[in-house]
Every structure is written in C-alpha cells, then in structure tokens.
Design a protein around this nucleic acid. Structure first.
Length: 437
RNA sequence: GUCCCCAUCGUCUAGCCUGGUUCAGGACAUCGCCCUUUCACGGCGACGGCGCCAGUUCAAAUCUGGCUGGGGACGCCA
C-alpha cells in the first residue's frame, strides 16, 4: 500500500452460525484498528457455502456487532460476487497456473519458501507446504474460502488483514495466489485464539459461546467488549476498565500479545458487575425493565414505580441481569419457597418472637425503613436477642433466601401487609414443622 | 504423522524490543481481617509466577540455542 492510502481492514464472518466470542474479538481488533488509524472498516459476509449460510445468522451477526458498539463503513456479500471469482480463476487457467478437473478448478503451485511478515509475530517462514495444488472453484461452481478471500482482499484493497491465528497456515497458500495473479499481498496481523477456561478450544460444551447468549444472560455490551479487549491486549497502566472509545484512541495492533488467552467467566462476571454499578440509576432501571420484559418475567400489574424501587435495591449486588430474576423474584411473586441453604436458620422455631414482631409492626403508622428498623431493634433488645438472631429468620420469611438486599429497605419496598403476611407464613410453617423451644 | 505458532502468579496481564531502576507490579479467583443486619459493596492484608537446561554478559524475566509443555492447521467448511 502507498503511504498516502487510507488503511483498510475487514471482518469477514461466515453466516453459518452466531457471532461467537472469538469472532467478536477479532472484529473488535479490526474496528479498533480502523478507527484508531482513521481507516475504513469493511464487513464482508463470507456466504459462499449456500447450504449452510442462513439469514437468521447473518441478522444476528450484524445485530451483535452493533450491540457491542461497533459500526462498519461498507458491507459486501461474497455470494453476489461469484462472477468475479470465476473471472480470476479463468485468468489463472489462461496463464497455465490452474486447470479444470472433474468440474472443479485447481490452482497448481510450485513449492517456494513463503514468508509472512506478521505485525504481531514478526517473520514466519514456511519451508514446505503439505500440498502442491488447491481447489479454488468447487465443482458446484462456488469458490473456496482461500480463493474468494484472496480475490476480495485484493479487490477491496485491504492494507492489513487482522484475523485469528488459526489462519496462519492458510496464509502461504493465499500469498501464492496473490503472486500468481500479480496482485498486491496485504500485511498480516494474526491475533491469538481465545481458549476455554480449561485451556482447550472454545466450544458449546464449555457453556455460552455466542454473543447473543451472553446478552440473554444479562451481560452488558460494554462489559463484554471491555473484557474481550483485555484478552491478549492491555491498555497498560494497570487499567482494567476501559470503554471502546477510550480504547480506540490508544489501540495499536502491534501491542497485541502473541499468547492465546483463556476465557474467564469469573472475571467477566466481575467486570459486568462493575458496569452495572457504574450505570446511572435511570439507565439501570431501564436496562432491568427491558431485560425482564424480554424474559416475560414481570407480573401483568407491576407498577413502574415499584419495579424501580425493587431494581434499585439490587443495583450494587448483581453481576449479571439474570441474577435479578433469581434474587428479586420474591418481590414480585408470593409463591416462593424456602431455599435449601436456609434449613439451619429454620430449624430454630422463633414463632413467639416473630409473633411479637408482627404485633409491633402492625401498629406502625409509617412502615418505612427507619421506623421498621427502630421497632425491630427494640423488639430484639426486649427479648434479649441480638439483632442478627432475628434478622436471619425474618429475611428467610420475607424472601425464602439467606441472602438479599438490606432487610429494612426491602421491608419498606414490600410494604406492611406483605411483610406481616410473610412473617405469618413462617410462623405457620414452624408450627407445622417443628416443636417449640 | 507433517507444517506452523506460543511460553511471567490457578486465570488475564505489566515489564521483555532499548539487559542493571524488579528479591517482578496490577486485576480476577481463593483465604484472612475490618465495616456490618446476612450476602454483596467498600477498605486492608495474605497466598501465589519469570517451564527446564545451556550459552552470551560484570549483570538475563529481558538476548541466543536446545528441551519440555501447550495450541493451531493439514476439507471441493470458512
């Protein structure tokens, strides 16, 4: 490329599956590079496998890219460019570098040392190649990946090809094709693969792999993008949290590591929690509402104000939005059961104490967190109990859970009637299941 | 099997290019303490690493070679 030319890079997914973690990160690196260099970012749909390509996948890939916060300047479909590939295959035939056999076209090459000058890895030298020919047009007339990729990268004037490390071994064949056609060879930057937590290949067996699944689990786009960025790249300065727009200012492809990185769900969860915490209250509530509506979780008559109060109760405690469904369910439904891990707390029958508490609570004029806390502590003190001794069973009574938001805040949100009804429910449970102490 | 890539705490990484400032810094996870109404949050702290062997050098995580280990590619899939 001439130095005056704008950098041009591309992300080239195949719509034969959803956008997965590895693809998303390759896309991210390409996008970051393009935006950092004020270059052009092309999305090229490699839909040459007509049988396996699906519109549904294509739509989802584009949606995921946008959802993650990226955009692209141009989009091309290889399925609309078959004529082009045939023209170039014919050129190879005409020059004696390819031949037709069984309706397919083979590119025939002489072995030669091939060198790749990789921006991330430096010089890679291939001393030999396993074969001396390569199918470029299949017998059904469709081009093979290595061929259409070369033609398009050349015609679209790609200055740099940023792609996964798994393509290193394709590169020498591709370079041979560029040369046979007299086309310019782009520069390369092969980024490391993302490994599963166990160190092996990322696959469905190891849980969610597609971006949409993470979205459905309640991960925020910015958190995923940020986390993915930290795999094989670092902003330096001991920084972990960085937005895409900050990253694009400092991103340099040469600073990408050579080492494959293992995906850590723990760290993603932590990061997602950080993003939830730093989301503004209003935006957070909207996020929760959207998420819950998508999951069809909310009862019909849930008021907006109530939802907001409940949502805020949990803001600092979620690592992903799906946690809310489990942890806040008791705020929307009365049919919860006592969790297994509350067994120890339930073993102690405190119906007498809880009855006293119910009585006091029922007389409270303002059932807010200040008043309930005051009354609660008074009852505990009068009974010679530590507040915590009463807190645990009351929490279980109200939520069925051992853990949850601040007890008095939760009571205020739930309201007097529900609180008393639920305390009564636990007393009944005790009376039916345990002997009085 | 052949070809290729890689190698700093369990994991993600800073440092490596331009050897001494590093008895290697940060983050996640784990553990402990503090705060406290449980969990969480927050604060503090602990644990834990330059794969091995040679070489170069006054000096190596940093340079070189070998070994070992991990990964990838060898489809008329992309």
């Amino acid at each position: 490329m001439k130095s005056s030319d704008k950098p041009i890079v591309r992300f080239a997914p195949s719509p034969t599956g959803y956008l997965h973690i590895g693809g998303a990160r390759t896309c991210l690196f390409n996008w970051l590079y393009a935006r950092h260099t004020q270059g052009k970012f092309i999305l090229r749909i490699e839909d040459t496998d007509l049988a396996r390509s699906k519109q549904e996948y294509l739509d989802e890939i584009i949606e995921s890219i946008k959802w993650l916060g990226m955009d692209f300047d141009e989009i091309y479909y290889q399925s609309k460019r078959f004529d082009l590939y045939h023209d170039y295959a014919q050129k190879l035939i005409d020059s004696g570098k390819a031949y037709k056999k069984d309706d397919a076209i083979f590119f025939k090459y002489d072995f030669a040392n091939v060198e790749i000058d990789d921006l991330i890895r430096g010089k890679i030298v291939f001393n030999e190649l396993p074969k001396d020919e390569e199918v470029i047009i299949k017998k059904d007339g469709t081009p093979t990946y290595n061929f259409s990729c070369v033609i398009d990268d050349a015609l679209m004037k790609m200055s740099l090809v940023i792609r996964g490390e798994d393509h290193i071994s394709n590169t020498p064949k591709q370079i041979l094709m560029y040369k046979a056609l007299g086309l310019n060879v782009p520069q390369y930057a092969h980024v490391p693969l993302i490994m599963s937590e166990e160190g092996g290949r990322m696959s469905k067996r190891y849980g969610a792999t597609s971006i949409r699944e993470y979205k459905q689990e309640g991960y925020l786009a910015q958190a995923i993008a940020n986390y993915l960025l930290l795999l094989s790249w670092s902003p330096g300065g001991n920084r972990e949290i960085i937005t895409l727009s900050e990253a694009k200012d400092i991103f340099e492809i040469k600073k990408v590591n050579k080492t494959a990185a293992a995906f850590s769900m723990d760290k993603l969860n932590w990061m997602n929690g950080e993003y939830i915490k730093k989301t503004g209250a209003q935006e957070y509530v909207a996020l929760i509402e959207d998420y819950l509506k998508g999951k069809n979780f909310l009862p019909e008559n849930t008021g907006a104000e109530y939802l907001k109060k409940v949502a805020l109760l949990f803001k600092e405690r979620l690592s992903k939005l799906s946690d809310f469904i489990i942890r806040a369910r008791f705020c929307f439904y009365d049919d919860y059961t006592y969790d297994d891990d509350t067994k120890e707390i339930l073993e102690r029958n405190m119906s007498k104490e809880v009855n006293i508490l119910m009585d006091k609570f029922s007389k409270l004029a303002n059932f807010n967190k200040e008043e309930t806390e005051k009354e609660f502590r008074q009852v505990a003190a009068d009974l010679g109990l530590k507040a915590r001794d009463l807190v645990h069973p009351v929490r279980v009574a109200l939520s069925g859970k051992k853990v949850g938001p601040g007890l008095f805040e939760a009571m205020e949100v739930l309201g007097k009637d529900k609180v008393i009804a639920r305390l009564k429910r636990l007393v009944d449970y005790w009376n039916a299941n345990t002997s009085k102490q």
